[in-house]
């Protein structure tokens, strides 16, 4: 499984391609971000997310724009942009697809899923399909280990994956079928996601469930067995609906793949 960490790719990092989409609006939004902090430079990470949302990658023009707004040199901004894994120097596809291959997910099947996807998409790690739709990357632990093996699309969770569900997922993305995260929203484009990360909400926080099945595993057991924390000053932190009833993720239209998984491991 040593091929997982093949970072090397022969594709050169493109320098300016002369088609920067940075506008006065972008600059104004950069200034707005800087104004949110006691010291403007704190906005550099959000500003670089904003550059990616506009440019599809971190471009030389984007770096210069950040530098201008913050009174830094381009080299100072580059030093930051090259430190963080989420900032990409090469153009990213419409969908960034991540496969966790850190130990737990790898052991649970992440390595096999990643190998399958590389073959299925005919790309290597951190490479983009020819149609520009999908950039595939093996990612580090994404804090969803109780749903292993885990994948992400534009940093939304896809839980309890298999090689089959993984290939189906990328096929759906390439064909333009609407795809929903089992613990998130309908999948937007990578650029739209980057704009949210920059600090400009897209109003979609109310989509999706409170959590998947694993998040609620202990709570459900406690409800079944009437286990609660001790009573405090403010009275018992009793549940509003102590009798088993419809749960948020059981509501129509709130299905979670994680809840309706056919993975018998979780039900036995």
């Amino acid at each position: 499984m040593s091929t997982v960490n093949d970072h090397a790719t022969s594709h050169p990092v493109p320098y300016s391609t002369g088609d920067s989409k940075i506008t006065e609006t972008t600059i104004a939004e950069m200034r707005e971000l800087a104004a949110r902090y006691p010291v403007g430079r704190s906005a550099l990470l959000p500003m670089l997310h904003l550059v990616q949302s506009v440019e599809g990658r971190v471009t030389p023009e984007g770096i210069e724009a950040c530098a201008d707004v913050l009174g830094l040199t381009g080299a100072e901004v580059s030093a930051v942009a090259t430190f963080y894994t989420m900032y990409k120097r090469r153009p990213v596809g419409e969908y960034h697809v991540g496969v966790c291959t850190n130990t737990l997910c790898a052991v649970m099947g992440g390595d096999l899923i990643f190998e399958r996807l590389k073959r299925h998409l005919d790309v290597g790690n951190d490479e983009t399909t020819e149609d520009g739709k999908i950039t595939l990357e093996h990612i580090e632990c994404n804090a969803a280990c109780d749903y292993a093996p885990v994948m992400t699309v534009n940093w939304e969770f896809f839980d309890d994956m298999t090689p089959e569900s993984a290939t189906q997922l990328v096929d759906d993305l390439r064909e333009g079928t609407e795809v929903k995260s089992p613990r998130g929203a309908t999948i937007c484009s990578w650029r739209e996601a980057e704009r949210v990360l920059a600090g400009f909400p897209d109003g979609r926080a109310d989509e999706g469930p409170t959590g998947g099945k694993a998040s609620l595993a202990g709570l459900r057991l406690a409800r079944e067995r009437n286990w609660t924390a001790p009573n405090g000053n403010g009275g018992a932190p009793a549940p509003l609906d102590p009798v088993p009833g419809p749960r948020p993720e059981d509501q129509p239209g709130r299905e979670s793949q994680a809840v309706h998984t056919d993975d018998s491991r979780k039900e036995d």
Binding site: A205, T210, L216, G218, R223, W227, L240, P248, Q251
Partner: peptide
């Protein structure tokens, strides 16, 4: 089990 932090996670629109 003593759900406190997770106690409201099964409420509708807990977020």
């Amino acid at each position: 089990l003593t759900p406190v932090l997770s106690d409201n996670w099964d409420q509708i629109n807990a977020w």
